[in-house]
């Protein structure tokens, strides 16, 4: 087991290194430069002075070498456009994305498993169709569109929730205020993530319900609900767990757009701002951090997977 984890960690490091190579060279292909230097009113002289300050007069390969060298020592460089260490920016933004992501993930999982179970129990009944309608809608409506509609409805018309941001000024410690800000973005994100969980739960439950031990239980005359919860549910958790790994990746992707809609200061918005402003060190940092989280979550999911289902052996 230890050697398995070790091997996965090494693999993860290699993956992250490849991510850094791909991201670094791709983003340097983009025309333009850091927006602080390449801006509309900047004269050639001012621009060159700034690019030189950032060390952008050196060849790309040299710059990558330097970046990698300091990155392995834990120094991700300084943002060109914000003048702050990249590590600090990431430290400020990651918790926000994790809060949003976790809230959305929990909501999506709980609701997803619930709806998936309802659908499986009522297979092909009207409840099944209702659930499938909800999930298919969740997969079919652009998240940002849902966000805008939610803002108009809940913020502008009903005035229940704030339209944007993470916390009101002067209320940094106010949990209710934070939850109010969290409600819409997390809800919208959860709605777009839920379909995966519902589908996997439903089909896993149906698959398990055909398994021998469930048939036996049913043969003994137990009620379908009891059979489902006593026997099928635990086994069905395995594939649901597996899907969580995938959902985490989707979560990061989804948060990029949702964070922009709701002005949520997370990693996704940081990445957009950095890409638009050609803030090379920040793009790299944000992408790597997102990759790291995904790698770690996947590893954890695989380990949990093994714990829940002893049949799975990692050589």
């Amino acid at each position: 087991m230890t050697s398995y984890i070790l091997r996965r960690l090494v693999l993860g490091a290699v993956v992250l290194w490849l991510v850094s190579v791909v991201t670094f060279f791709l983003i340097h292909l983009a025309p333009g430069g850091p927006s602080s230097a390449v801006s509309f009113e900047r004269t050639a002289e001012e621009r060159e002075a700034l690019l030189k300050q950032f060390g952008l007069d050196e060849p790309v390969v040299v710059r990558y070498g330097k970046w990698l060298l300091s990155a392995v020592q834990g120094d991700l460089g300084v943002s060109y456009n914000q003048g702050l260490p990249v590590a600090l920016l990431l430290k400020q933004r990651l918790p926000n994305t994790l809060t949003l992501g976790l809230a959305a993930l929990v909501t999506a999982t709980v609701l997803g498993i619930l709806l998936g179970t309802v659908a499986a129990v009522n297979r092909n009944g009207w409840l099944d169709h209702v659930v499938s309608t909800i999930t298919t809608l969740g997969m079919s409506i652009p998240g940002f569109w849902l966000g805008i509609v939610a803002i108009i409805l809940f913020a502008v018309e009903l005035r229940w929730l704030p339209a944007s941001g993470i916390v009101s000024s002067g209320k940094a410690g106010d949990l209710v205020d934070r939850l109010k800000h969290l409600a819409m973005p997390a809800g919208v994100l959860a709605f777009t993530l839920m379909p995966n969980v519902v589908r996997v739960t439903r089909s896993a439950l149906l698959e398990v319900s055909r398994a021998d031990f469930v048939r036996t239980a049913r043969g003994k005359g137990l009620a379908p609900g009891t059979v489902l919860f006593k026997h099928a549910f635990k086994n069905a958790l395995v594939p649901v767990l597996a899907v969580l790994g995938l959902v985490t990746t989707a979560l990061f992707s989804g948060s990029v757009v949702i964070e922009s809609v709701f002005g949520w200061p997370g990693l996704g918005r940081l990445a957009i701002e950095a890409a638009n402003g050609r803030d090379y060190p920040v793009i790299l940092g944000a992408t790597l951090l997102a990759g790291l989280v995904v790698v770690v979550v996947n590893l954890l999911v695989d380990l949990l997977y093994a714990a829940v289902d002893p049949r799975i052996r990692h050589e």
């Binding site: 502008v156 704030p162 339209a163 944007s164 922009s260 809609v261 002005g263 918005r269």
Partner: peptide
């Protein structure tokens, strides 16, 4: 800090 003009007006 609200990046989007539409969101500013909504707020």
């Amino acid at each position: 800090i609200i990046p989007d003009g539409n969101a500013q007006v909504a707020q």
